[in-house]
Design a protein around this nucleic acid. Structure first.
Lengths: 337, 337
DNA sequence: CTGAAAGCGCTTACAG
DNA sequence: CTGAAAGCGCTTACAG
């Protein structure tokens, strides 16, 4: 039961009660400078007394703008996505815009369905934070509304803006760190076939080659396989791993513990993404951090710019390495590479 | 750059192109049965060809409804909240409604600010999933729109609906489980002073008393204190703990590991809420599960009913115990209670 | 500074 | 089955 007595007051009711025209009420409530101070005060008072609230639909209808954007994420549960969303929200607040969050639930169909539903709210633009979204879908929605992608899809269609992290640089940081600790037999646990994961794997391979460690390149498909080799004490088993992302690193560490393989004692593990989880598990995971909130804020500002002048950009931000407890100096004598 | 050439087509453009009146187009696109099949087909074809999409603002303005609801959560990162949101979304989909998610970021001010912003979208109703929201705030918004609270705030104002889990029953399940495993010195790690946490603590105390274990009731404020006592081998140290929620359980287990206290060997730990995290950590945590999606769905259906007939309900759902690895039978001889 | 008027794009009776 | 008209609540020129 809401206590609205009859219908909500409109601009007309306020005008009548304040003894002015409705146009003047409109100007006053929007803070237009062309209204005498005392008149404005009287009108605002009346509006307050009547409990007047501007009708958003009427406003949007006549302005052709809703002052809102949709931010669509792959998975709400992921701290990664949530941080980006917070960056978008903070920048939106500065722009006086509302942000509507949509959750793709890690499912392409759900992602699309959700966006379609949210389009019915009449947003002014779209931010997509998802590796799930294919470029056809992105292109289709970019044709309807200004759109910015946070991340790195295969081939971003023209007309879509972009904010991404430098995956190549990030993985280099991880590999360099492990090498600096004395490791040579550094394996890689790859992620999905998505672009970010592919870029990270390629960077791993390239960086190893650059460091003269090409012979030690091992892309190992499953954590089990890797852990088994280490547990069995195989001569060429890896002493360190860089994972495509933190989830994989967490899973790996779990399996290592189960198999009695000490991390980082016998196996140093580096992650990527700096999820909350990476700091929560034991040992806390050394990982690559993307400036997620900054990425979200950049995305929203780019969207605002697109709304103003239609300009599209591709922005790249630089990741950093976060040192924690899952990596340590090599203890055994490694065979010289 | 979006490829809209000039302005978007309206119902009038479709009407002209199809050679009918605009009212007929309106009826046809909404699937009104009073339009001859072939006419409808022609109109729909034309609409498609022109890329016509109904303007949501105009529709909402004239209908006085937006077919959308806001669901406001305390913390998006929490799997608990996310599951409730998914329940709301699924039920909303059945009702042809869009759901707009707002994130309170575990901060009362942020929660309120976000809701206020999202009100500018003109939602038809509000679902609040938050212990943060005080009853004044709930009352205020419930006076503006139909509102349902998921959870259990102190004194829910009239006019707000409610869906909650039976915290009393849930904590009973946990305590009974530990007692069945042979534990007697069962401590409790309390949560915040929020209602759900208080109800759980009280249920712990009451259940212990019912089982004749009143003498063993120990509400211990910090995990450190508890772990220290166990590590020091104090004679009356707890052999089991039921925590007010999973976060506390995770923290406790982390500290226990750090202090060399084996879980569940020397200390059985039960959580509450069944967060994703509870299954991910080692040992996986025995916990109490709330039927979160069901709660979300109930909330939305109640909202839909309120929209239809203004009826408000208080619904209570029953939690269940999920057995995992953090609890085990008592090994030492316990002093008989 | 202030008011009368048109119009945003739709839906809803109301006549035919 | 179909069309002409009013109206949802606002904003925006346009006159005064």
């Amino acid at each position: 039961m809401n206590t609205q007595t009859g219908r909500r007051p409109t601009i007309l009711d306020v005008a009548a009660a304040a003894g002015v025209s409705k146009s003047l009420v409109s100007l006053a409530v929007r803070g237009d400078p062309g209204v005498r101070a005392e008149t404005r005060a009287r009108i605002l008072d009346t509006a307050d007394r009547l409990g007047y609230r501007s009708n958003p639909w009427a406003r949007s209808l006549v302005r052709g703008r809703s002052q809102s954007v949709v931010v669509l994420v792959d998975d709400l549960r992921s701290g990664y996505h949530t941080d980006v969303v917070h960056g978008v929200e903070d920048a939106a607040e500065e722009n006086g815009m509302a942000v509507v969050i949509g959750d793709g639930r890690r499912d392409r169909g759900a992602l699309r369905g959700r966006l379609e539903r949210l389009m019915s709210l009449g947003p002014d633009g779209i931010v997509i934070v998802s590796g799930q979204a294919d470029s056809a879908m992105i292109g289709e929605f970019a044709a309807r509304l200004p759109l910015v992608v946070v991340g790195r899809p295969v081939d971003l269609p023209d007309g879509a803006g972009q904010v991404s992290n430098d995956d190549r640089m990030g993985m280099r940081l991880a590999v360099h760190h492990l090498v600096a600790l004395g490791h040579r037999r550094i394996a890689h646990l790859p992620g999905s076939p998505r672009p970010a994961a592919v870029a990270r794997r390629e960077s791993y391979e390239r960086t190893m080659a650059e460091l003269g460690l090409g012979a030690h390149v091992r892309v190992i498909p499953t954590a089990t396989e890797l852990v088994d080799a280490v547990a069995a004490g195989e001569a060429d088993a890896a002493t360190a791993v860089c994972c495509a992302n933190d989830r994989i690193a967490v899973d790996l560490i779990g399996r290592a513990v189960d198999a009695g393989v000490d991390v980082p004692g016998r196996l140093s593990v580096a992650g990527y993404d700096n999820l909350d989880l990476a700091a929560q598990v034991r040992p806390a995971i050394t990982t690559v951090d993307q400036p997620r909130r900054a990425m979200g804020a950049l995305a929203l500002r780019q969207l605002a710019d697109m709304l103003a002048d239609g300009e599209t950009r591709r922005e790249v931000v630089t990741p950093t390495l976060v040192l924690r407890d899952s990596t340590s100096p090599l203890v055994e004598d490694p065979p010289i590479a």
